[in-house]
Design a protein around this nucleic acid. Structure first.
Lengths: 202, 202
DNA sequence: CGCTATACTGACTGAGTGGTCATTCAAATG
DNA sequence: CATTTGAATGACCACTCAGTCAGTATAGCG
């Protein structure tokens, strides 16, 4: 089955609409964003949106999922190319900070979604949760290994993984707010230093 | 000017409505919460809400402000009664964890609001920001003192303060999710241990 | 060139919401 | 008991917005 012209057009539209949705959702948040605005930004009519996505919710999920997958892939690749546990943790922090630095819009969606996730009646999809869980798991495994090899002191690795993740997020937030006057590399170094000392390497 | 009967009734209604609003906002988030639902929970008619609060937004602010002030006061008191820097940091973490443990609803509002705060078009009031800034400042001052007295290694205190704050938040989140199987005290000890080692006391 | 298929459009619908206000009625007053 | 008062009410209004669909424009084809 060859790729027809139709497929190409569909792909083009799908991507264009997703791009617009991504920007509007990042700017306004899910509730405040309107389909009319997304259509305006995508430069298509409102009805067209519904030819490619069945609902606002689906569009939102798609936007989240794409970026989440990208971040996860990058982080994983970056960690794999590092040798020692310390380097891996450093790579994790660096990759995360760098990704969000390049995609501040995604961070805004991500961060607000992350907070909402704990609402009892969260009817939002769990892409962000899954990203979070996956990222934490990856870190956790590294830490567990390190503990077994006695590279770091015995510690509750999962909680530590979450903590590292959250410190990283916290630094991204400070940078986006303009509260950090340090360079990206300095901030990476700071986050690593703090967590690494906290974990207690030997 | 003595307190009239009217004042008492007003106070009673105001508090009752605020309590209901608090619960509904915590459960649903700002946008999903409806005035009709708040009225139902408060067991008054919708119009009555507007006799005591001029708008949904005002009600939300009031709900946030009250709890934020309470948390800030508790934390401050707890830290003041501690002697050493380490004890103060420990007190901070403990007070925060304990408060949120008692008020999981507030944490949900707080956390979701915190994420939203960085949206560019945030038209939400800044109670949460102010709470956050105040809490961080308090911690920061303690850390700065400690650095001057050489009780801890020289460090970027503000960033460290934010990190401590965020680790604490992160643990609250894990507890609310039921992800933590440890006792409250164990979690407090863990958070303190991690941050304190991270800061690098001597 | 005429015909058909269909991608696209945007006015429209209907559900839902924040906020209002004429009306009600219980309690206070005399 | 009659009268006044104003707190409480809830039907209502104006508006928003996700989602629909009858109609239009255009590309492809014979």
């Amino acid at each position: 089955m060859p790729r027809t012209k139709k497929d190409v057009v569909t792909e083009f539209r799908t991507a264009g609409i997703l791009e617009a949705a991504y920007r509007v959702f990042a700017e306004q948040g899910f509730e405040q964003a309107t389909m009319a605005e997304i259509a305006r930004v995508a430069d298509v009519a409102k009805g067209t949106l519904y030819l490619y996505y069945p609902s606002k919710q689906h569009m939102y999920s798609a936007a989240l999922r794409q970026s989440a997958a990208e971040l996860a892939a990058r982080t994983r690749a970056s960690m794999e190319s590092a040798a020692s546990v310390g380097d891996k943790v450093h790579a994790f922090i660096g990759a995360t900070l760098r990704y969000f630095e390049e995609h501040p819009d995604f961070f805004r969606i991500y961060d607000s979604e992350f907070g909402r996730a704990r609402c009892r009646h969260a009817q939002h999809p769990r892409q962000v949760d899954e990203l979070h869980i996956e990222q934490v798991k990856t870190l956790d495994q590294i830490l567990q290994q390190a503990v077994r090899r006695r590279a770091i002191r015995p510690i509750r690795t999962e909680e530590a993984a979450v903590a590292i993740f959250d410190i990283t997020r916290s630094i991204v937030k400070q940078r986006l707010l303009g509260a950090s006057r340090a360079s990206l590399d300095e901030d990476i170094a700071f986050a690593f230093d703090l967590t690494w000392k906290g974990i207690g390497h030997r």
